[in-house]
Design a protein around this nucleic acid. Structure first.
Length: 308
DNA sequence: GGTAGACCTGGACGC
DNA sequence: GCGTCCAGGTCTACC
């Protein structure tokens, strides 16, 4: 029998807008239904996997309606609430300050960014997004869920998979050993999620620790930092260069354009990434329509500039 | 400290 | 249908 419960959200929270705010909303095991504006995905809970459906039928600021495919204990409902709170950035208290710094997004209300229910899933998703076109990132995450665990592989489960299996069946290529090593570090506690998530841990310490991880370079570290709600660094990549040239009108070598993009967002201080990201996202939406209307099977595979 | 080249995959392109 | 080229960020070796 299903469990049904509600989850309170901040008064400015608009589910379809705020969930469809970062590309990972299109990656397995997330399943976004653009017509119904409903999210379905399995979550790993203490009593086993449960498929949850999340919606906000009454609109902005209204409680989220959560339905699971099996009965959940009180403790499991608390787990689901905790995982969704992380995923939907419901504890983000910086949106108002962001809008004060960059008023362009005040009217649309853009400010919150979605992420994964766990830091580990965000780390692996980031590794699968490096040095690869977006359709391959989609494929890798799809296969990880099909081959290893439908609810997205936990660190413990992934640590037991052979790199050759990941390479052959999940199309992760040379990332195979790095992914398994990351899983071992997370499973053993050497990657301490609580330490990374603690707002009291200094940004520089987090950055240094991330760069030390296998498969994590400057881009991936900055991206994981924004997924941790630390928005002061920009994950600069080829999309940043494209954005610098086409939208901001910068000229010169890739390196010079990157430096100018970084300098351009400097005044946004602790909210640099939000300002940069929503400008980028706005550009995608100008080409492809609002992100919550993207069909994961079509537009969702081709919204990045490289696919145009 | 800076840089060249290897690492893989899949899509685009030419034949 | 096949072969070749290219994009993408990280890592290592080398200067």
């Amino acid at each position: 029998m299903a469990s049904r419960f509600t989850l309170p959200v901040p008064s400015d929270y608009l589910f379809y807008r705020d969930f469809c705010s970062y590309g990972y909303f299109l990656l397995a095991p997330n399943r976004w239904d653009p017509a119904a504006r409903v999210l379905k995905r399995p979550l790993e809970l203490s009593g086993g996997v449960a498929e949850v459906t999340v919606a906000q039928p009454e609109g902005k600021g209204a409680k989220l309606r959560v339905v699971s495919d099996r009965a959940l204990s009180r403790g499991e409902k608390a787990e689901v609430s905790r995982l969704l709170t992380r995923m939907l950035s419901l504890n983000d208290t910086g949106v108002r300050e962001f809008h004060r710094l960059d008023p362009r997004w005040r009217r649309s209300g853009r400010g919150r960014l979605m992420r994964s229910p766990t830091l580990f899933e965000d780390i692996i998703k980031t590794v699968t997004s490096c040095n690869v076109a977006w359709p391959s990132t989609i494929r890798m995450n799809q296969r990880l869920c099909e081959v290893v665990d439908p609810a997205f592989p936990s660190a413990a489960k992934l640590a037991r998979v052979r790199p050759a299996t990941l390479r052959a069946r999940c199309s992760v290529g040379y990332r195979d050993k790095r992914i398994v090593e990351l899983a071992r570090l997370a499973a053993s506690g050497e990657i301490d999620a609580a330490w990374f998530e603690d707002p009291g841990t200094p940004d520089e310490a987090v950055l240094e620790a991330l760069i030390d991880l296998p498969g994590i370079g400057p881009y991936a570290a900055a991206n994981i930092m924004q997924l941790l709600g630390r928005y002061h660094r920009l994950p600069l990549d080829t999309e940043s260069v494209r954005h610098g040239r086409t939208v901001l009108g910068f000229e010169g070598t890739d390196k010079a354009v990157m430096a100018r993009v970084a300098a351009h967002f400097e005044p946004m201080g602790a909210h640099r990434f939000r300002s940069y990201w929503f400008e980028l996202w706005n550009w995608y939406e100008a080409k492809r329509g609002k992100s919550w209307t993207w069909d994961p099977a079509t537009t969702g595979k081709s919204f990045t500039a490289a696919q145009f």
